[in-house]
């Protein structure tokens, strides 16, 4: 079991969370060229090692989080709310 330290609820099993994929993907402006959209929708770096990813605490406070996790060792090095405003509130 991965243990994710939710900034609001504390440390919980990862089975309480829903995985939301690569958080390094920035969606382009609606007016951006189609290549930028193809890249954002379909292409991933898929690193073996440090990976910045989205998780939602769906069985808890329902916050979306940014988690830095190693895809080989599964070690979690950083957890933060995805929205800066929420991060500021929790400080």
């Amino acid at each position: 079991m991965l243990r994710i330290h939710c900034p609001f609820c504390g440390e919980r099993d990862h089975s309480e969370f829903t995985y939301g994929g690569d958080a390094s993907v920035d969606y382009p402006a609606l007016s951006a060229p189609v290549e930028a959209w193809i890249d954002a929708v379909y292409v991933r770096n898929n690193p073996k090692g440090a990976h910045c990813e989205r998780w939602q605490h769906s069985d808890g406070c329902r916050l979306w989080l940014i988690v830095e996790r190693d895809t080989l060792t599964h070690e979690i090095t950083r957890v933060a709310p995805a929205r800066a405003a929420v991060a500021a509130l929790l400080k």
Binding site: L2, H14, Y19, G21, D22, N46, K48, H51, E53, R69, T71, L72, T73, H74
Partner: peptide, 8 residues
């Protein structure tokens, strides 16, 4: 259900 190369 999460990215991994761990074979575990």
């Amino acid at each position: 259900m999460y990215n991994s190369y761990a074979q575990r």
